Simulated scan of single mutants.
Amino acid sequence: MFRRILTVAATVLVAAVLGGQAPAGAAPDRLLFIGQSTRTSWDDYTSFAAAPAGGSVYYEVKSGTWVSTGHRDYATFLARQGRAIQIGISWKDNPPGFNGGDEQVKAARSRAVTAEIGAGQYAAQFDNLINFVNAYPNARFHLRLDYEVSSFYHCTDASCSSYKSAFSRLRSLIDGRKRQNNVVYVFHPVRGEYQQMYPGDAVTDWIGVSIFAHELCLPIYDNGYHYNGQTTTLQCRDAYIGTDSWGNPAAVWKDWDYDGNVLKMMKFAKDHGKPMILSEAGMMNFTGGSDTRGLEPARGDLWVKRLFGLMDYRGPLPNTAGTHDLSTVIKAAVYIDLDFRYGWDGVQDGSFDFPVNSTWFVDGRLSQYSTARTSFCQGLLARGFTTPC
């Protein structure tokens, strides 16, 4: 009993530190996924914390298999333990039939492939994925039907019927061949096109969003150029519908900790009764063109606190009247936890590394930063994650 009293007291204290309240008597229900690509991030995270609920990997349509053996091995590692696995099923990055050209050419091919998937083509490219799902009935799969989908890469017309048809077709294909009920389907759009591209309530289980720098109103730097996010206030500025001195509706300027499109997507998800997953979340370059080491303890801690603050958002929305409680919308989060300075897999193996002044030149491993790590562990507890530190 004494231990339980201490645990409850600690939970309340942590919630107060993060500016929220621990839900009275509520069981933890949020899922934490760690990393993408390989076990590298898993191994770093579990060096200081209990094993999370799962991880994240990628599968591509063109080859009909995992993006690399590292993705396959990490997925197998998770599945054998019966854990949750987010799988990004991608065709926009490397569309079937694309053999070279600029981004416009690749995007045009991706749009065509989207329509072709909707028409029933490429079914055999999903055999390996479906067989993998069937081989691990105790695992849970969150399938993103492409990721960060956009009109540029997926819509053949303004209605975006091409992507909606592709989403429905893939769900029908996988549902028709899987042997157990352990799959959910994730719609993961770029933050400004969620309404236009939404596949519909009948086929969408979860809604995903990426959370990096600007989504938390922090600046992004690339090759010495600053874009997105204000460097001084570290906030976004947007207008929402408030009232003037006579009580009439009027635009009111407000400094935000969160991108307005993300907040409105959260309301959209709540209105449609869909839980959200932060499908990709990680730090980005904190400098204008130099090594980021040494800056993550301060900026990284702010990033972590805003990340967990987003999960407890209650307040106004841009261009929307009233205040809104969005504190129960986000039900899962994927923290990448990689040293991106050494490429997408974060492995210092002599392969591709990011340039020092690029967007992704950042060490995002929580093991390296005590303050950010402490805030992360506090956030897990205060926000009701099933696997706190």
Rank of each mutant, 00 (worst) to 15 (best):
M1S: 15
M1L: 15
I5N: 13
A9H: 00
A10K: 10
T11C: 07
T11V: 04
A15L: 02
G19L: 06
Q21D: 11
A24W: 09
F33P: 00
F33M: 05
D43T: 09
S56P: 02
Y58R: 06
V61M: 10
K62H: 01
S63Q: 09
S68R: 11
H71Q: 08
R72T: 03
T76P: 10
Q81D: 14
R83L: 11
I85L: 10
I85C: 07
I89Q: 10
D93A: 09
G97Y: 00
F98I: 05
G100H: 07
E103Y: 01
K106M: 03
A108E: 15
R109N: 15
R109F: 11
G120C: 00
Y122D: 15
Y122P: 14
Q125F: 00
F126I: 03
N128C: 02
N128V: 11
N138H: 06
N138A: 12
Y147R: 09
V149A: 12
V149E: 12
T156G: 15
C160A: 05
S161K: 09
S162A: 04
S165D: 13
S172W: 04
L173Y: 11
D175E: 10
G176Y: 07
R177C: 11
Q180G: 03
V190E: 05
V190Q: 07
Y194C: 13
Q196R: 05
M197T: 02
G200T: 01
A202T: 10
A202M: 04
T204M: 08
S210R: 04
I211F: 02
F212T: 15
H214Y: 13
G229S: 01
Q235W: 00
Q235N: 11
Q235E: 03
A251K: 11
V252N: 02
W253I: 14
M266F: 09
F268R: 13
F268D: 14
A269V: 09
L278T: 11
M283K: 05
T287D: 01
S290T: 09
P297Y: 02
R299N: 12
L302N: 13
R306I: 00
F308M: 02
L310N: 02
M311Y: 01
M311K: 01
Y313V: 07
Y313A: 13
R314I: 08
R314S: 12
H324G: 01
L326M: 07
T328G: 07
I330C: 06
A333M: 14
D339S: 05
F340I: 11
W344Q: 12
Q348R: 15
G350M: 07
V356T: 13
F361A: 13
V362S: 02
V362Y: 01
D363K: 01
R365Q: 13
L366V: 04
L366K: 00
L366G: 01
Q368D: 12
T374G: 06
C377L: 08
Q378S: 10
G379S: 14
L380C: 08
